[in-house]
Design a protein around this nucleic acid. Structure first.
Length: 458
RNA sequence: GUGGUUGUAGUUCAGUUGGUUAGAACGCCUGAUUGUGGUUCAGGAGGUCGCCGGUUCGAAUCCGGUCUUCCACCCCA
């Protein structure tokens, strides 16, 4: 026997049923994006390496899939470089393209490249696969879909408010109630780092703080000490480790703590506006909470930070995230273009919906009606009816060969086709169709227009 | 990238201290039934035990490597 075929690590095949369920999520998200006024764009699955490299930090660069140059790519490489076996330097010589790592950076590139055709503020959504050379894990794949919505060209906080509502609307529509939209603000984190005199260690500080719910107070303290943050400084921020209360209480505490920091105070004000507004408007099913420990790795965020957690009791990493970036397009040469965006992790949302059994309503991908094939003459007669049914939007098909009846019936049964039509010489003579209901076994004879009505009404 | 884990029929899994021809259930194919599916009955096909190498008289079983699965860390959706 031939060697068993396989697919690469971290990739998946999707069966018809799985595709139907994924489509349901895509369609839901898409329709909400559209009702919020976003338009769809698409970008290539691979970009020039320089567009992507260095945008996601050192860790990110490692996880970008590089594409080998075509042709005899090694012949152009320098002898010494080849001998040095320096993978990093060699990569830049033999690979000039790389697979898309997320949708945000290609979007920034798009905005800069098409700035003269775009009407700002530009609201776009994008649903496409991305690739990361990560080690697969639960809810973690090497190829997965992101569903992004971003607005560039407006620094209004109303955009943030809009995005919180967008999250709420999508998850409510999906029947996934009780998700938590966590919010923070990069300026608050900067402010905290400032008052403890550790601005130079902002990233280390936030990364450590981000792990609070995972490794606890002591773990965070230990990691901060290891990163060279002084004990004195850690003591100052200690209140954050036991940060509880309502959003308003947290805001007030933060305002006090950050009173001496201009930037920190600004962050608190921004967050207060968003939280106050959302509290006034109200949400359908999601909760909005202020989470000072929320950091997110991407360092291009400058204002609001979002992350969406699955409802309590579901073990899953974040199912969405985003934030504001004041200078994302700056790296491509377009200054002063503030943007804010969010992302849905389709594959994880799928897993959560599956776990909670929320997929029941998704229609099975199957025809409504199968015509049994008794031979060419009968098939021709059936085909006329099939054309009529299809014109009415009824999914109909003829069994492709005049195989044994049992086999044809079995096919209908296996595919869960609700109706089967039998046409033999008797039916042709009378101009009728025998319709069999597969679930009840009931069998009735109809004229064509009666058949249409019966099937439409079922 | 670090540590652990997994792999036997299409699928889910058994397989004893290393010992005849590697099993079960479900699924698949054929027939009982040439115009009737699900149920039943009878029969049948299907395996390089992930792959490569080693130890041994003998390996699904022990050892090494490699790939894969899942998990934790790192990081992230």
């Amino acid at each position: 026997m031939a060697q068993k075929p396989s697919i690469p690590k971290g990739t998946r095949d999707f069966s018809p049923v799985e595709v139907a369920k994924r489509d349901y999520i895509f369609t839901t998200i898409k329709s909400v994006f559209q009702t919020f006024g976003f338009q769809s764009i698409e970008t290539p699955s691979f970009e020039n390496s320089e567009t992507l490299m260095g945008k996601y930090g050192e860790e990110g660069d490692r996880l970008i899939f590089k594409i080998l140059n075509s042709g005899d790519y090694l012949s152009k490489a320098d002898e010494n470089l080849l001998a040095s076996k320096d993978s990093q330097k060699l990569t830049s010589v033999i690979s000039e393209k790389a697979l898309r790592y997320d949708l945000t950076v290609p979007f920034a590139r798009y905005v800069v490249q098409h700035q003269n055709e775009i009407e700002f503020p530009f609201k776009r959504y994008q649903i496409q696969p991305v690739w990361r050379a990560d080690r697969p894990q639960k809810g973690r794949f090497r190829e997965f879909y992101q569903c992004d919505a971003d607005v560039v060209g407006s620094d209004s906080l109303w955009q943030e408010v809009d995005f919180v509502q967008l999250y709420d609307t999508v998850f409510t529509k999906l029947g996934l109630n009780g998700v938590t939209v966590k919010m923070n603000n990069r300026k608050i984190l900067s402010g905290i780092a400032e008052i403890i005199d550790a601005s130079d260690k902002l990233i280390d500080f936030t990364v450590a703080l981000d792990k609070l719910d995972k490794i606890g107070k002591e773990g965070v303290t230990k990691e901060m000490l290891e990163k060279g943050i002084s004990e004195e400084a850690i003591e100052k921020v200690a209140p954050l480790f036991d940060f509880t209360g309502t959003n308003q209480e947290k805001l007030n505490q933060l305002a006090n703590m950050l009173a001496s920091s201009v930037e920190g105070t600004k962050g608190v004000e921004e967050l207060r506006f968003i939280i106050d507004t959302i509290e006034t408007i109200g949400l359908q099913s999601a909760n909005l909470t202020l989470d000072v420990t929320l950091a997110r790795g991407l360092n291009y965020y400058t204002g609001a930070i979002f992350e969406v957690a699955a409802p309590e009791g579901v073990k899953m990493g974040s199912i969405g995230g985003g934030g504001r970036y004041d200078d994302l397009t700056g790296i491509f040469g377009l200054k002063d273009m503030s943007g804010v965006g969010i992302s849905f992790g389709l594959d994880r949302i799928y897993l959560v919906l599956e776990e909670l059994g929320l997929f029941e309503e998704v229609a099975q991908p199957r025809p409504d009606i199968l015509f049994i094939n008794f031979g060419n003459e009968e098939a021709l007669y059936a085909t006329k009816a099939i054309a009529k049914l299809r014109a009415e939007g009824i999914k109909s098909e003829l069994y492709p060969s005049d195989a044994k009846m049992k086999k044809q019936m079995m096919y209908a049964n296996k595919r869960n086709i609700p109706f089967v039509v039998l046409v033999g010489s008797k039916e042709i003579e009378e101009g009728t169709y025998t319709l069999k209901n597969m679930s009840t076994g009931e069998q009735l004879v109809y004229k064509l227009n009666e058949l249409l009505q019966v099937v439409i009404n079922s």
